[in-house]
Design a protein around this nucleic acid. Structure first.
Lengths: 210, 210
DNA sequence: CCCTGTGAAGCAGTTCACAGCG
DNA sequence: CGCTGTGAACTGCTTCACAGGG
């Protein structure tokens, strides 16, 4: 009943895109979709869609396509979007504040339940219904709220320390917005979102083109 | 004198990380660095560092390593960080505001010179010394300021339209924060930063681990 | 003797092309 | 007859391992 194990990283990275596309199709009242159409909407190639979906153990209907609702359910299960994982955001600067107000968490299986910072001037302020707490209280917060995901939006200098603290209190995965490479134990999944890096990559291609 | 052409995508994506690491080493007064040390700091494998750097036409010194300043200069040139490309941010919601205040652009070859939105209530407000202008004025703004990069921070529904407008006014590359796949002409480099996708990918790995 | 540069091997992901089912 | 599922070929990236220069 659980879907196939060991889905390739490249496939996992595309599943959220398929999911978003399928949500749109469902909202538009579509009940089935072919790999060709899904591929077009998701910006990939049709063979890739079929190979990716076959990894889920999903079976489409030959001659017809895939059932939208069924596919949504299966992808949702693989990604764990029904889990409602408690999230803490560490670092309430510009970006932390923007994320605290971001509305996209709940429909993706995450719920921001705590905000922390180490600047005493910020403690007690409220964002999106949550009060900023001191980073030193993380152990208690993590225990009380059973935090499973940490989002790091501190300056680069503080990020490794924060990552260590998150790991120490038992957080299960980390999303890092600080522009630095973090060392965490191999069993903790970590992903980074790095604006400066993305811009510089663009810089290369633009530079080349001219 | 220009570095080698045709650097693989995977290498390009790592250059900003090497650059950041080298900036740190330079600040710490280091003048040379071995591939092993650079690899450790950048979180990759030493052979990869050597192969990547060899693509730049850079030559390290056998038995010693690479000269930090020289390497920085070469990577900077490849990435075009001295270009100071004018950037417009389209969509001044939470994220757009956070990016407008973000300080990391200038040292990476980018300068935010304009902010736009389509909500009349936001026009005229100021962020980081810039006044929000109406998105309808984009053609004039782009012409006057010679905009070369567009950052899209609108809701998903508006993003394709905005992308079309950016392409129409001659923007050379696009960074998309909206959670949707954008269609742009093949010659326009585009990258996406997608928080919801990253979270869902984490969701998969965390889910799997338990 | 250390550390780079690089052929060669290995691996992962993509794309092709078609058999086979509804 | 259309569209899925998938072997097989292919492409690109990573890693190994070592020759060779300083």
């Amino acid at each position: 009943m659980a879907p196939e194990r060991d889905i390739p990283d490249a496939t996992v990275a595309r599943l959220p895109v398929y999911r978003r596309t399928l949500v749109g199709l469902a909202a538009a009242g579509e009940t089935t979709v072919s790999s060709a159409r899904l591929a077009e909407l998701a910006g990939v190639n049709a063979a890739k869609v079929r190979k990716d979906l076959s990894r889920l153990g999903t079976y489409g209907v030959r001659g017809v396509g895939y059932e939208v609702e069924n596919l949504l359910m299966q992808i949702g299960e693989v990604l764990g979007v029904n889990v409602d994982a408690p999230v803490v955001i560490v670092g309430m600067g510009n970006l932390g504040q923007a994320l605290a107000r971001y509305g996209g968490f709940s429909t993706r299986g995450f719920r921001v339940v705590a905000l922390t910072d180490s600047d005493p001037k910020k403690i007690g302020k409220k964002f999106a219904g949550l009060t900023i707490q001191h980073q030193d209280d993380l152990p208690k917060i993590a225990k009380d709220l059973d935090i499973s995901v940490g989002i790091i939006t501190t300056p680069a200098e503080a990020a490794q320390q924060v990552a260590d603290e998150l790991v120490a209190v038992g957080v299960g995965s980390i999303l890092n917005f600080a522009p630095t490479v973090l060392n965490v134990p191999a069993h903790i999944p970590i992903r980074k979102v790095d604006l400066a890096t993305e811009l510089q990559i663009l810089g290369y291609y633009q530079h080349r083109a001219s």
